[in-house]
Write a protein that binds this DNA or RNA. Structure first.
Lengths: 193, 193, 193, 193
DNA sequence: TATGAATGAGTGTTCATTCAT
DNA sequence: AATGAATGAACACTCATTCAT
């Protein structure tokens, strides 16, 4: 086994570009194959079907994000700073991988398949990171012990995600990623107290 | 011809149900026609094409929501209470029209057509309501004058939207809409101070 | 019964215009109805179906042409002059009713229905006029008795028809109807001797 | 891949048969596919769309005809004999490829697309051959120098075309192709003098 | 007579997927 | 492993025709 099949990687990159540019349902497998410079059939050697391609993009990037997030968080002790690091990382990665971000935020939501039926383990891992930060904040007496982490982890994700989406789709950027990060951090740190 | 075509209304209702159940791209025009008990061709008497049907669902419900929101907000003086009313209304309406909410939140995001190209007037009206509340809060010295309403209006929307989405899709409800509303209000009111 | 229903006439006129402009298969019954300022359904009060509309245009105009041709021919004694009058009339009428001519020449040929299956009485009447002129010419010793009128009547029709078609479709007219008429007459009169 | 795709050829053959039998507008792509023993989609690997299929039939056969006509004409010196050869060839080919002839003569005229909009290069090449023969005849003092070749080339085509059409559609042949050829030649040779 | 809303069968075209090479 | 020609199911949309008013 190669470290990770180089061709599989190329296809994922190509699919990310194509799906971001045209949308999942408006992209054909042939489009992806062409972008990846492989034959149509080759895609089916590495992915079960078109849906699997989308899911694979998601899983791979979530794995990377979750790992990066955990490393980043471990650099800090206080929940407050951890939350800041987390938000900052999320927005910086979106900034760095704008096409990938678009695919995950827009295309992945499209179909019931992904949101309703597909048991979204990776997404829960993401949310767990946020929840743990909140819990730690409560233990450290930084955050209000009465707040419901189960609900708010999702609200925090929604807010970050929406800002990221807006920023990626905005043609003429009205604010920087740093500003956005600062505003969000301020609001949540105060809001959770 | 009725004042507002009864058949047009029936088709919109049917489309909402079908799109929520199967997703926009996995629904056929024939599915919608069958659910509405009209012939396939009849749909094209009232809507330009399948996309137009989706957009119409969105515009009609946004109009209703915006009107309701403005009425609700006018019942209060303080920005704090206005924000509470707003969040509460949003979540209550989602609770009441779960299928509609699903369509708007999930299906409408799916295609570049809607998010990127379609000039989303109605959505900006929604965001403007939030922005005005924040501005009023600043004037009333309730909210911190330094916060960036242009960014945070979107964050607030994202948080509410995400909670609503989770709640609608959750099979076994782990929390009530009222709890969710309370938690969100608490966090934002504190967060904006 | 009105002399000839005024509405029926209006519909035929409208259909002629629409079919000439867009072609029979690219015209809808609704297009014709709109041009005639009647409701779609009204057309079915006067015509059995869309095909019947086309056939009716043809029959009505052939009747008119055949009558006019017989009158015109009776003004002359010699077959040579009769042939000249005939060709001249054909081309003058095409000149006068260009849209009608287009429909008959192009659209009517489209479908097997008209050329193969539809027993084309009127068309045979047309050809018979030509045949009779040739026969008369033979009797008058003006035309060669050996020529086969059964074949050449059709050739003469084809030549006139093609010239008429070219002339109607030509945007910038490279020759006048009178020139065309003169050239054709010269050739046939000599050719039949 | 064969030198000239064998499958493309098969589809053209099948389309010729189907269009001749049912007419272009009354044939479905599925009919053609079935006759060619290929899948519906395969047709779109070789042709842009249904119209393209019809145009391709026309262009291929016109190329063949024009080449054959030029070879045939070069066998003769006198314009008179060249004209005879030309008429003879046209009618013999129609005799040999009756279905093809029907498609070209009937179906191709049907739509504005072909006659009005489609710049009909090939057809002009056909007409040019006739024109050149007439010019040569004038130079050889065989034909009358006063006749208008620009007009009469089209008349000659119309006559041949119409005779060919009649002959192909005639169920019980009332005359042979050879007779038709003889009559036409006689008439035109005399008529052009 | 006249209307025009409603119908629903029909079709060109697309594209995910397969499989012989 | 890789190819890409071939497949054929699927679907949005059209439009001739009907019929209740």
């Amino acid at each position: 086994m190669k470290v990770v099949s180089e061709k599989r990687e190329r296809i994922i990159q190509a699919a990310t570009i194509i799906f971001a540019r045209q949308g999942f349902y408006n992209s054909t497998v042939a489009d992806v194959a062409k972008e990846a410079s492989v034959a149509d059939g080759t895609i089916y050697l590495y992915f079960k079907n078109k849906d699997d391609l989308l899911i694979s993009i998601f899983e791979r990037s979530m794995d990377m994000f979750i790992q990066a997030a955990e490393e980043e968080i471990n650099k800090e002790k206080s929940a407050e700073n951890q939350l800041k690091r987390f938000i900052d990382l999320h927005l910086r990665l979106v900034h760095k991988h704008q096409e990938l971000a678009q695919v995950i935020q827009i295309e992945l939501r499209q179909s019931s398949k992904f949101i309703k039926e597909y048991a979204n383990e990776k997404f829960f891992s993401y949310l767990n990171i946020v929840e743990k930060i909140i819990q730690r904040g409560k233990e450290q007496k930084i955050f209000n012990v009465d707040i419901n982490a189960g609900i708010l982890k999702r609200a925090i994700f929604g807010a970050i995600d929406e800002i990221a989406l807006e920023w990626v789709l905005m043609k003429k950027k009205r604010y920087s990623i740093e500003e956005a990060s600062y505003e969000l951090c301020q609001m949540f740190v105060k809001g959770l107290k």
